[in-house]
Design a protein around this nucleic acid. Structure first.
Lengths: 254, 254
DNA sequence: CGTGATCTTGAAGGGGGTCAACTGGAGTGG
DNA sequence: CCACTCCAGTTGACCCCCTTCAAGATCACG
């Protein structure tokens, strides 16, 4: 809701049809769109997904790959005992379903956390487009690589560190995503539950709750349900560097 | 050492020059190699890396991407405070340096844990080869997707679970890699230190040591330094399913 | 054979998992 | 409109697993 209207404006005239879906998709993944491609290529389909709606299911045969246009998606795997392990949250411009290229089966379940939309390209069209349109190919490569970097960032976030530090890193990451999208980096609206965040960061959801309290206590953030205000981003960034929680009194000096 | 000789035999006549480097590379990443490509394409360079040697450094400009031919590599990031976070171990056929396609800089450091070798393709050649040789492109896509799946597996391994369970999952993963390479799935020889494993699994290296002891105590494995014998792989697999450690006696007597 | 890295084992202390109770908001049906 | 239910979120109490610090054992290598 917040993103779509504004960001459409950033790509002028899309609504007047001057930009094709393909053109807009290229813009999303940061590929420079050549001007000569009007109608000459297969067009991706624009697919809306309602809040809570499923994009694809773990284990299902993959039919197409997607690029997020609006909204936020939760990407997770379900273990044998029913535990839900969140492996990422996908926002505007991110690639979804790429992992299925290894064996044509999705290895994650992906659902929308709010009203969302994606551009979808069937696997056959995907290869054809990449062959015919180098800028598309480049964009896809870059998006795939970025997704990989993203995953290693998650690992870093889960690395031996106190829960509060993990949460601080998470909030800073969301903040970065916001500012990249042209929003305020200090005013966040989280789309996911505490439980989702906990799964993502590898801690219990109660611990997330307490960590929010601790960061608020420390005067670093303001918390109102899922609306987060970052009060001192420099201090939060400093805080996120530490490995373990420096207790209440701060002062890591000895 | 163990891999190279045997696996070369699996691809017949490579040493007699009937297979080009490119041909062998395609074989490594599971692409079906057309028979008409002798000398018609750029050849990847075969690059040996000594034990402990550096393949590329985090932050360095990326010049080429690599596919592991022999040996095992450790892939890690170094945090500001000097902590070494291992994000993966790369074995035969795995893609290295792909993440650099997003911004032409490596986001990990990669070193060989034993004498190793890779096929390297410069970035320019990389794009050219993919354009001209669809099977290469397909192979790369599949390898990249597999690397991504791999990363989500790591997350699953680090998901809320006891240290012993994590280690069990890790050993099973290594076992799978061994059997995929045509080796015994029950007789493992680890190339990494306890500290590396600990970083990879998100626990202290002392805990890894104790976890080895616990799994040995339970009769699931035999441990002799870095030589691991899996005694009961079914039981180990069952054990790895559980989320938390079911203690010793499994029935808490009062 | 010495030196340093690796691995093991012990002890202590705390962080966070788990269970449980309570609050508040959203949706449903009376 | 209100009772009821369900889920998200918060807070408290308990205590076990893991981190940390420390010391010893073992291995690798010049």
């Amino acid at each position: 809701m917040y993103l779509s209207d504004k960001s459409e404006l950033a790509s002028p005239n899309i609504d007047r049809g001057e930009w094709s879906h393909l053109h807009h998709l290229l813009d999303l993944i940061g590929a420079l769109a050549d001007s000569h491609l009007y109608g000459r290529f297969l067009q991706p389909t624009l697919r809306p997904v309602q809040a809570g709606g499923l994009l694809f299911l773990e284990g299902a045969a993959a039919t197409s790959i997607h690029v997020v246009r609006t909204g936020v998606f939760k990407v997770f795997r379900t273990t044998e005992d029913g535990y839900e392990q969140v492996v990422g949250f996908a926002r505007r411009g991110e690639l979804l379903g790429f992992d299925a290229l290894s064996d044509a089966r999705h290895c994650t379940t992906t659902v929308a956390l709010e009203e969302a939309s994606v551009y979808s390209v069937s696997l056959a069209d995907f290869y054809a487009l990449r062959q015919d349109l180098p800028s598309f190919d480049h964009g896809v490569m870059r998006a795939a690589a970025k997704a990989m970097v993203e995953l290693t960032r998650v690992l870093e976030m889960m690395a031996a560190a106190a829960a509060e530090v993990r949460l601080a890193r998470f909030l800073l990451h969301v903040s970065d995503c916001m500012s990249n999208g042209g929003h305020s980096p200090s005013s966040l609206r989280l789309q996911m539950t505490r439980r989702d965040i906990g799964s993502y960061l590898g801690v219990a959801h109660e611990t997330i709750s307490r960590a929010f309290g601790a960061l608020m206590e420390a005067g670093l953030i303001e918390v109102d349900q899922r609306k987060i205000e970052i009060l001192d981003i420099k201090a939060l960034r400093r805080y996120s560097q530490s490995m373990r929680a420096p207790a209440k009194g701060d002062a890591p000096k000895s």
